[in-house]
Design a protein around this nucleic acid. Sequence first.
RNA 1: GGGGCGGUAGCUCAGCCGGUCAGAGCAGCGGACUCAUAAUCCGUAGGUCGUGGGUUCAAGUCCCACCCGCCCUACCA
Length: 595
Amino acid sequence: MSQHILTAVAWPYANGPRHIGHVSGFGVPSDIFSRYQRMAGNKVLMVSGTDEHGTPIQVQADREGVTARELADRYNRVIAEDLTSLGLSYDLFTRTTTANHYSISQEIFKGLFANGYVFPRTTMGAVSPTTGRTLPDRYIEGTCPICGYDGARGDQCDNCGNQLDPIDLINPRSRVNGETPKFIETEHFMLDLPAFTEALGSWLQGKQGDWRPNVLKFSLNLLGDMQPRAISRDLDWGVPIPLDGWRDRNDKRLYVWFDAVIGYLSASIEWARRSGEPDAWRQWWQNPDARGYYFMGKDNIVFHSEIWPAMLLGYNGEGARGGTPGSLGKLALPSEVVSSEFLTMEGRKFSSSRQVVIYVRDFLARYDADALRYYIAVAGPENQDTDFTWSEFVNRNNGELVAAWGNLVNRSISMAAKNFGEVPEAGELTDADRALLARSRAAFAAVGAELERSRFKNAVTEAFEVVREANRYLAEQEPWKLKDDPARVKSILHVALQIVDDAKTLLTPFLPGSSNKVYAMLGGKGVWSGMPEIRDVDEDGGKPYPVITGEYDGAATWQSIPVRPGTPLAPPTPLFPKLDSKVVDEELARLADGR
RNA sequence: GGGGCGGUAGCUCAGCCGGUCAGAGCAGCGGACUCAUAAUCCGUAGGUCGUGGGUUCAAGUCCCACCCGCCCUACCA
């Protein structure tokens, strides 16, 4: 039975290139999941984009003497290239600065407003006296009123650890330009989160036993103290507020987090329009059988398990104040929130500013995308923070990808090509033959079950067991010693090639690039598992921008496909390059240099 | 300060509701083999499961306290 699966992937903030910690949290896991779901016959819509509004981008743009839009343009393209080169199979990776996104964000705001879940409130806030823009707490520093430390941030003192209110700082100053912030009364719109406490509570209770327990526990706990949350800022970079008297104001915009989470919906709608069926998105958002899986790092849980669901409930008219659905109709809440822990780097936190960082593009300039994907799948931060080390990377690559899987492909195809030049016919099968074939077929259900639960580590380990079994099988059968029994050699190699073919299918979600190679080596025609590409598109004659998209309806399906005897085989070339152990030292030196 | 998560063999990590859970993969040691990118296969692991208490017939597995690390704490996104 084919199901509609929405894979909603966290939106990277467009203030720099992505590092491998970012893609280990939201990128690779969401792609493994989506590729599997497509192979299993489901209709996947995988969407994301760059998140481009907000103060940090404005500040960085000012610093560089460019406009916020120019900075966002630059990093939107850089990030799209990072994600494409990793083979992440987005149906649409767009951005938050499109006219479509503006209009959908405004529609959600209006729906919430009409149902009474958004209200204005005058608050005290810091702004820059020269620009009039909101100055977020952490852009303010001064002397801590508690311990007297001079470098305290507006939200917290790094010295004594106390939480602060910026208005209490002694000699407050802006970290952007050193000026003294002005504390003014300013009117903002608030999202009435307390009105959703009950609705969110019963929704979350229904996820018991389904979600990862840490996400659920964390989310339920937050319900105890829901407060209204501001959804607008004093800023000119963002989505205008769609109400009379506000629409044309140049100093008020929707707060970036509010428009960013709406991206999942607006990107789905943009995808549908580009696909020529403008209403197609409704299959993923309004069909009761559809499921929505959201992928993110642990720092983003609250937005996906609390705030975005609250926004959807409010738009649907399902909070404490009731109401009616907005013009788009009722929208579905997340089915599952899949969050990752953090990847650290040689024992330290990733930090671009402190040069503790490995950028995706630098990594992929020197190593295979599948090597990184494999590392993240097998040793990534799925259940707890995990540490990336170069020596572990080299070990995994050489010991598992090259020595176990690459070698199995190589030895099997090599023997068959050398002796027969084609996939040989199997004769009568022995118990050992049948046992291995059965083991491999059974793996589809086992690995699939793990993937459906987003247990990627278990899944890839299970798939690799088949590879190890096959190497064991060849060692036991010793076809190279059976020169006087060609019929038996044919059977053994037939079985071995069948397992190679099965394993390439099982590994496709994790290692799509190399599985495509194995598919071709075994005589497969056309595309096995599609890869993403960047296309420049425009919107109503507007400025072109890059999106990631692709055709992913390849031949790949989640089942054992019999190899065809007689298929010509050429001597194989190695699937993965073996890495010299010197790269560990080279990379560590690079880190020390800050290169 | 409050909340959440984690601290398991040299390394990176699995261990859901308590009772073959003390594990896997690397690395190490010994052996076999040669089809294959010196790859593969077999054998070999005595780690007080962060510390100290408690519950239980039985606790990495539940409870409490403490130590360490990470995340959130709603004006970073």
